[in-house]
Design a protein around this nucleic acid. Structure first.
Length: 645
RNA sequence: GCGCCCGUAGCUCAGUUGGAUAGAGCGACUGACUACGAAUCAGUAGGCCGCAGGUUCGAGCCCUGCCGGGCGCACCA
């Protein structure tokens, strides 16, 4: 019996290759359009027909003969113009899959993978655009870990950048606040800064003279001078805590928070610069527009050169990013120092510092790096990769993956709800891209609050007997599931136009629908225990699939059972596809379809009311099987299953 | 100007790296709660897959051109 599709492929290849010129790459096992046509199909007769100048039908017939008798296959048939359809041995297949529940047939390929995501400027509240980033990033992390990879999650904190500078400018120059005043700001600090940041952006646009002061603040923050740097530190740390709290609502966490301030103080850039200069990756420009700058020629546009160091000697964003990417691969020959920032479920989240600490922890030095950043940064990400190549790190360049995704925009209806003043040029657009600077955006916590509120109403109505704390807990889980599924259901390359009505929906293709399916399943387990007065887990543990005879099922049930089981067994493949394509909408859709199939199944086939013992056992085994797989799929998407809902 | 992305049912979107009859959800219309939970299920209607060529046994998917929309191409980050 083969354990995985890969094993089956190998067996097929072994049978066919003596007679037919087939390569492993050409051999594709696809699902059939209908169960009547078998479980898996090979279409290799068509390309072979061209090569061998024979009819596909003749090739398929001979191939089917060669394939007969493979263990685990019941029969092989030729259909249509030349499809080879494989029928699995259902009893053996189910037995094999059931006994290997919770064991994936997948294996790690890297020594350590770094996934960087979230990366919100610590100067304002998180919004829906950031949620898309964090949900995609966290799901990637979960999929990689499911596959068996060792993953380190990094959340880069630009605590000395211009966005923080803007807020510091606002606090010092517009609000005239002291550091002590800052402590006394009431309410949500990230919300306060959200409004302030918008005001500052507008003010700076209208008062060019203020740029001088802003530039001075930037310099002081970069050099760690008081009190500006203290303001920046206060603001960024407080907002960072707010961001982490927001992400925790979605069950998203991090291993380490590398800070821009540490990179500056530890002079990561100076090291990277020396390397880039000495290797000739960048050179000093003496003529033209870039005179006085250190520049890097671009691979595909040799006539253009990207400025890495400005003529005033300061380094650009890309330059710093190259240094940071080198650190991620352990190529800088230097690490940060670290200290604990907070505890999350007993696990420490570390933050970088520039001064030595007593903690012996190390991060970075991955063999593969995923940077989750929206599509607008594609060009700059390409330049960063080119920097690695120019330094001779070909392999690392190939393993620097820009996980890009489209932006989040707001529908006109959503815009109307948040009551933001729109610029004249933005008024007539079909949608508007979220922008922290313009204050155009749905704050993540506002969205979650509204979802929780709505979920709580529903829970109150359905489960009034539960304690308030329990009902609130359930509402939180439902709200998180709604957001997470919403962020995954759309392809990453398509622009997500946020609409409240869709995001607040709990019916149909939504996170709560998935949870509901799992909750009802567990409800059957619970009812089983009440009705038969025995532990479901013990009962299941004592039930072996070997004892169960699938022929106890009649035609319709056999068909529906099989359809469900085969589909459920596609999870591993779905996860691999998600990782390979960095696309999770398929995983989301797969899980949703699994739920639909399952809801339909148990609607048709009552479990506890079934009188025939053998059939009941088989149904119990089936729903237990599906439940296990469903829970794994939900876990991959970061969706929790409430007790009741 | 150059580069990247999107265009599929009234709306929002899937479509498994070229496979058999293009699928979901929402909305609309019919039915099903004295039932292992109706946040559910069963069903009906709804399609020049932006347009035009090409590649081949086969194209929503690949190539070319065009149309429409978005985003990049800073001594900003």
């Amino acid at each position: 019996m083969f354990r995985t599709k890969k094993e089956l492929k190998e067996k097929i290849l072994a049978r066919l290759s003596p007679e037919f010129p087939v390569s492993p790459a050409e051999l594709e096992l696809t699902p059939t359009p209908d169960q009547k046509l078998g479980d898996l199909a090979l279409s290799l007769a068509f390309p072979l027909a061209r090569k061998l100048k024979t009819s596909p039908r003749v090739i398929a017939t001979r191939a089917a003969e060669l394939l007969s008798g493979i263990e685990g296959l019941e029969r092989v048939e030729v259909a249509g113009a030349g499809y080879i359809n494989l029928y699995l041995d259902r009893q053996k297949f189910f037995r094999e899959k059931y006994s290997s529940l919770r064991k994936t047939g997948l294996e790690a390929e890297e020594t350590k993978i770094i996934v960087e995501h979230t990366n919100i400027n610590p100067n304002k509240a998180a919004h829906v655009g950031h949620l898309r980033n964090a949900c995609l990033g966290d799901t990637l992390v979960r999929c990689l870990r499911y596959k068996g990879e060792k993953v380190e999650v990094q959340n880069y904190i630009d605590d000395t950048g211009v966005q923080v500078v803007d807020v510091v400018f606002g606090l010092m120059e517009l609000e005239k606040k002291t550091l002590a005043d800052l402590e006394r700001v009431e309410g949500r600090f990230d919300y306060y800064c959200w409004d302030l940041y918008t005001r500052v952006s507008r003010y700076l646009a209208e008062n060019q003279a203020a740029q001088t002061r802003k530039a001075a603040i930037l310099k002081k923050i970069e050099h760690g001078e008081s009190p500006e740097a203290d303001f920046a530190f206060q603001v960024s740390r407080r907002i960072l805590r707010a961001h982490l709290a927001t992400m925790k609502r979605l069950d998203i966490s991090y291993d380490v928070l590398p800070c821009e301030s540490s990179i500056l103080r530890l002079k990561f850039w100076e090291k990277a610069f020396a390397r880039l200069r000495d290797s000739g990756a960048i050179h000093y420009s003496t003529s033209g527009e870039t005179a006085g700058c250190w520049v890097m020629p671009l691979e595909d546009e040799p006539e253009r050169e990207k400025i890495i160091v400005r003529s005033d000697g300061t380094v650009t964003y890309v330059g710093k990013d190259i240094a940071y990417q080198l650190w991620k691969f352990g190529l800088l020959g230097q690490d940060f120092y670290y200290e604990p920032f907070l505890k999350d479920n007993g696990r420490t989240v570390w933050i970088s510092t520039a001064s030595p600490t007593a903690h012996q922890v190390h991060f970075g030095a991955g063999s593969k790096v995923y940077n989750v950043i929206d599509v607008r940064q594609s060009y700059l990400q390409k330049v960063v990769v080119q920097g690695l190549k120019a330094l001779g790190y070909q392999q690392q360049a190939e393993k620097s993956i820009h996980f890009s995704y489209e932006m989040v925009a707001l529908s006109p209806r959503s815009l109307a709800e948040i009551k933001v003043d729109l610029a004249a040029e933005d008024k007539d657009k079909a949608f508007l891209e979220v922008s922290g600077r313009k204050g155009v955006g749905i704050k993540a916590d506002d969205l979650l609050d509204r979802l929780e509120e709505k979920a709580l109403e529903e829970v109150n109505r359905r489960n009034p007997d539960l304690t308030l704390a329990t009902r609130q807990q359930i509402a939180r889980q439902i709200a998180a599931a709604a957001v997470r599924y919403f962020m995954l259901k759309y392809a990453r390359t398509s622009l997500l136009v946020f609409d409240f009505d869709e995001a607040l929906n709990f019916e149909g293709e939504t996170g709560p629908y998935l949870q509901y399916t799992a909750v009802r399943l567990r409800s059957i387990f619970r009812k089983f225990e009440e009705r038969f007065d025995r532990s479901f887990q013990e009962f299941i543990a004592g039930l072996s699939p070997d004892q169960v005879n699938l022929s106890a099922l009649d035609g319709d049930e056999a068909r529906d059972f099989w359809d469900l089981v085969v589909y459920a067994c596609g999870l591993d493949e779905e996860v691999l596809r998600a990782i390979a394509t960095l696309e999770f909408s398929g995983l989301a859709k797969y899980t949703f379809n699994l739920c639909q199939k399952f809801n339909s199944y148990y609607h048709h086939y009552p479990v506890l009311a079934e009188k025939d013992q053998e059939r009941q056992n088989l149904r119990l085994l089936t729903i237990h099987f599906i439940h296990e797989i469903l829970c794994q799929a939900l876990h991959l998407m970061g969706i929790q299953v409430p007790e009741k809902m």
